[in-house]
Design a protein around this nucleic acid. Structure first.
Lengths: 154, 154
DNA sequence: TTGAAATAGCACTAAATTGGTGCGAAATAC
DNA sequence: GTATTTCGCACCAATTTAGTGCTATTTCAA
């Protein structure tokens, strides 16, 4: 239903939390205790983030995770891509432009416009940095087409 | 994984097909035979489209479906909304701005930026008309933020 | 040296969503 | 009347996702 997975959601929350911790290494337990997130599952997500190089990890009793790059250089696109793969709107619409396993392909009339939409979504995710997530200032979001209905910065 | 459902995909194909048929009523069978789509499932999708008022239906042996409005006035957003609901990126991010059943809510740090992204996606779908789907001309797509990597219109 | 606390890896179960089907009823043209 | 269509609802099957179990390995610190 065109929704991010819980894994991605948890990953985003964890990364935002890490931003707040500065460069300090933060354990999965600590993050999981700050939000109603199953610790075990969050651990799994963090492992994936480490595998894809978005965070560094340290083992041992004082170990944990920390951002591998400054939050300005990590995008929502990076995170989504690491945790659930790049978005593909239709089965005949892959990120690399191939229509590999699409049976409709030879007669499919909706490919190129859907690709355009997907690219737009993707662009938006790549344009939104982790920094923008943590700083909800209207400026920092770098999304010119924002429809602002009334956050009322309190 | 941030992907449209098959139902939506089939719906899009069917609607594009209807555009080609002009104002003529087209049966589910005819459409299903033009593409490798299970007839039975397509029928279900068309019923939904009819229920939501995007297409008109006629029963009887010469019946079928036809667009209820000109394709310029039907958007991808309308179609997606009819077949799988409006996109919601995270569980704390509903279309109406409420965070109804979100347990993370009081401490959730990612709400407003995700809402912005979702709104951008939504806007893009609302901006893309069925006409644009059927006419893959770069002009007709009305997507100002298109990542134009090949067409090179300028 | 020992133990606690942390990540790493892998497999597994359970729940939810989605894809697809069955079947009968009501309408309509011939 | 019959063939062909949409309509409505329920149902099963396949896939995806959420979440857990368990063990090994690393590291700090007492």
């Amino acid at each position: 239903m065109l929704q991010l997975t819980k894994r991605t959601e948890y990953g985003l929350i964890a990364l935002v939390h890490m931003v707040d911790q500065g460069g300090e290494y933060t354990s999965a337990r600590e993050i999981a205790e700050s939000y109603p997130i199953p610790k075990r599952l969050l651990a799994e997500v963090l492992k994936d983030l480490a595998r894809s190089g978005l965070v560094n990890s340290l083992r041992g009793s004082t170990g944990g995770y920390a951002l591998a790059r400054p939050p300005e250089q990590i995008t929502v696109g990076d995170i989504v891509s690491a945790l659930e793969g790049a978005p593909t709107l239709a089965s005949c619409d892959t990120a690399d432009g191939n229509a590999s396993d699409c049976e409709v392909e030879p007669v499919c009339p909706i490919r190129s416009p859907l690709q355009r939409i997907r690219k737009g979504i993707w662009l938006q995710m790549q344009r939104t940095s982790l920094r923008a997530l943590v700083t909800p200032s209207p400026q920092a979001a770098d999304l010119p087409l924002t429809a602002r209905n009334g956050p009322a910065a309190s």
